[in-house]
């Protein structure tokens, strides 16, 4: 994913963020089409996920919206949305780390499974 599109990703969220109620705008953003496009871009760029697996993005985003199923705190999200230093790299890496535990990517990578899928939560 290009630097520009990562900025666009963050930009989209920043336009809706409120410093006092960050969770809701974030959830709104993770439900949006632009989030889906950007998340898929991250996965495609770094993990070479093919277009055929694009349908996995929506269930993955649903997981990111579910409390208890992701590993980052709201406070950290807020820091990213406020353009904390390193937020772009952090956000892309966050998506990759979450995808690794939300999907069977590691099993596919290890040759145990062939078809990429989002794991039941």
């Amino acid at each position: 994913m290009s630097q520009l599109s990562r900025r666009a990703f963050l930009g989209a969220s920043i336009t809706t963020v409120s410093t006092t109620a960050f969770a809701s705008p974030l959830l709104d953003f993770l439900s949006s089409d632009s989030a889906a496009a950007e998340v898929f871009g991250i996965l495609q760029t770094h993990l070479q996920i093919s277009s055929a697996d694009r349908h996995l993005v929506q269930p993955f985003l649903r997981r990111l919206r579910t409390p208890g199923l992701h590993t980052e705190s709201p406070a950290t999200f807020q820091a990213w949305l406020n353009r904390a230093p390193g937020y772009e790299v952090n956000l892309a890496a966050y998506v990759l780390e979450e995808f690794a535990v939300a999907s069977n990517f590691l099993a596919v990578q290890g040759g145990h499974e062939s078809k990429l899928k989002i794991l039941p939560s």
């Binding site: 390193g86 952090n90 892309a92 890496a93 990759l96 780390e97 690794a100 990578q109």
Partner: peptide, 15 residues
Amino acid sequence: PVRDIPKLIEVLKSD
């Protein structure tokens, strides 16, 4: 320890 994309990719793509 912080997030680091190149190192993470290395971990994700190998053992």
